[in-house]
Design a protein around this nucleic acid. Structure first.
Length: 486
RNA sequence: GGUGACGUGGCCGAGUGGCUAGGCUGCGGUCUGCAAAACCGCCUACGGAGGUUCGACUCCUCUCGUCACCUCCA
């Protein structure tokens, strides 16, 4: 099926056509591992996951998916510094080596990150690579040398800077983000004095070593410039090494358009002579209760915070997929609850399809449903419309009235759909009573018997008793179910 | 100040020049000893003011409001 995406370069929805016919190379800006990831971060990663799953299932492509792990930057350095408040006891004790401390801290949070995204239904086996920046220092240095050799970077005070004004004579700077060079906000110049940049819009490729910071030697033009890489350079180098240029799709949050992605384009082209990618896809932000998530607003949640509140991680995933990736998503607890119920409706439907004891005469067109749904996903990942098709279908096709062949066709469609949504179970409906103590089961049965013999007073009494012990009885048409009190 | 996005019914969230998604909640009903569940039905909105048009929520202008980016925040 043909797939289209909104490309941030052209600002239009374009037909997707990969460099190779059957393989898509894709790079996603990953986390900086200095803390637990928050749910806003997760939206970006779930969006990338959705994208690569749609490419696999709807587009029938092989996908080579790379996501970087930023493990060297101001924050990872700050938090791993000796005596840092951010150092947790479970990381062990710090050593004299800044680099070792950095590694311990970043690996700790990298493990936590991988654990979190796994819980949210991202399959780690879908990654071709999850490269850490510090494993590509030499490759970054090679790129920096190339940029200098090509005349688009300069050494100043032990650091290396990209020369934006020089680059502007060779190519456009501002492909993703229109930049008004005469109207840079004055506040932007805050850092101008900290480093000896020739121009405020220049950005750093290699930062000179500071006291008590991890560093790497860097031999260049007969000099040694001990220091560490700038922010943008890791992506350019790792893309080149792991995917080759140009690759097909680059994803990230909208905030990264400028300066991060803009600088990435410039330095890749200035060094390798080729722009990194053909399609740039950016997801919009997540807000919490209508406001930007921030610690001061008290609406800042990590994945772990939500799990501690008893929220099912798959409900987080499903809630994120319920909005289009290019719109702001208002994340609310009421909203997650609503999506939980919506998801359960589809789940119940799947269980009904799988139950071969109840069927009827009617037929349903599973192929049509597949086309309708996949068309929406192929059209710039339109999950809300895809789900709307699903719900309309469910409303109009009672599973228990369908014949066995239709049920089976639909079931296999839902399995395919789930290879994208990863939010449904195809295991038999869990038998709730198996987890319940015998004494409770017996009481419930006693109540049921009382009810059957019209002794409602006794039945209600037992129900009350069960409730006081934390169990809720709900009668169905020809039986009852036992639930825990939430 | 510059750049960009957005304002849709109680909430979330799609969309299109006329046929007016979907979810959640709520309400009414069927069912039920009651409750719950399930099922059926109902609730017709597009920030404001002009304009274009036979007709605009959809196009244009203005206006109000919200937000993001321009600061190594996804």
């Amino acid at each position: 099926m043909e797939i289209s995406f909104y490309n941030s370069l052209s600002k239009k929805v374009e037909k997707f056509s990969p460099v190779l016919t059957d393989e898509v190379k894709m790079y996603s800006c990953g986390p900086t591992v200095y803390n637990y990831a928050h749910i806003g971060n997760m939206r970006a990663f779930l969006f990338a996951d959705l994208l690569q799953r749609v490419l696999r299932t709807v587009g029938k492509y092989e996908v080579k998916w790379v996501m970087n792990i930023t493990d060297i930057d101001d924050k990872t350095i700050r938090d791993s510094r000796i005596g840092s408040d951010a150092w947790l006891s479970e990381m062990g004790s710090q050593t004299e080596s800044e680099l070792d401390n950095l590694k311990v801290l970043t690996e700790f949070y990298q493990d936590a990150f991988l654990d979190d995204i796994s819980k949210l239904g991202i399959n780690l086996e879908h990654f071709f690579a999850l490269p850490a920046a510090t494993d590509f220092i030499e490759e970054m240095q090679d790129l920096i040398r190339k940029i200098i050799d090509n005349g688009f970077a300069y050494i100043s005070g032990g650091s290396v800077y990209f020369d934006v004004s020089k680059w502007r004579t060779a190519d456009t700077y501002g492909k993703l983000f229109k930049i008004d060079f005469d109207n840079f906000k004055s506040g932007v110049r805050i850092d101008a004095d900290e480093y000896e940049r020739e121009n405020v819009s220049d950005f750093v490729l290699w930062k000179e070593k500071k006291e008590n910071e991890p560093f790497w030697d860097f031999e260049i033009n007969g000099l040694n410039l001990p220091g560490r890489p700038g922010w943008h350079i890791e992506c350019s180098a790792m893309e080149y090494e792991l995917l080759g240029l140009p690759f097909d799709i680059h994803t990230g949050g909208v905030d990264l358009k400028f300066p991060h992605h803009e600088d990435e384009i410039a330095q890749s082209k200035a060094g390798y002579g080729c722009e990194p990618t053909n399609y740039w896809l950016h997801n919009d932000f997540l807000e919490v209760e209508g406001e930007k998530m921030s610690k001061s607003a008290g609406n800042f949640f990590t994945v772990r915070d939500l799990l501690d509140k008893g929220i099912d991680p798959i409900d987080i995933r499903f809630a994120m997929l319920s909005a289009h990736y290019r719109t702001k998503l208002n994340f609310t607890f009421a909203g997650v609850d609503a999506q939980k119920k919506a998801r359960r409706r589809i789940q119940e439907y799947i269980w009904q399809l799988a139950d071969n004891n109840k069927f009827g005469e009617l037929t349903a067109n599973a192929e049509k449903l597949r086309e309708d749904t996949f068309n929406e996903l192929a059209n710039d990942l339109h999950t809300p419309k895809a789900l709307a098709h699903i719900f309309s279908f469910i409303n109009n096709n009672d599973a228990e009235k369908l014949n066995l062949q239709s049920k089976s066709e639909l079931l296999s469609f839902f399995e395919q759909l789930n290879s994208i949504f990863e939010a449904f179970s195809f295991e038999p409906k869990p038998d709730a009573t198996s987890q319940i103590p015998d004494s409770i089961v017996n009481l419930a049965q006693e109540r049921w018997d009382a009810k059957r013999s019209k002794d409602f007073a006794k039945a209600d009494e037992i129900r009350k008793k069960l409730e006081s012990e934390g169990w809720i009885i709900k009668d169905a048409r020809d039986g009852y179910e036992i639930f825990t009190k939430e």
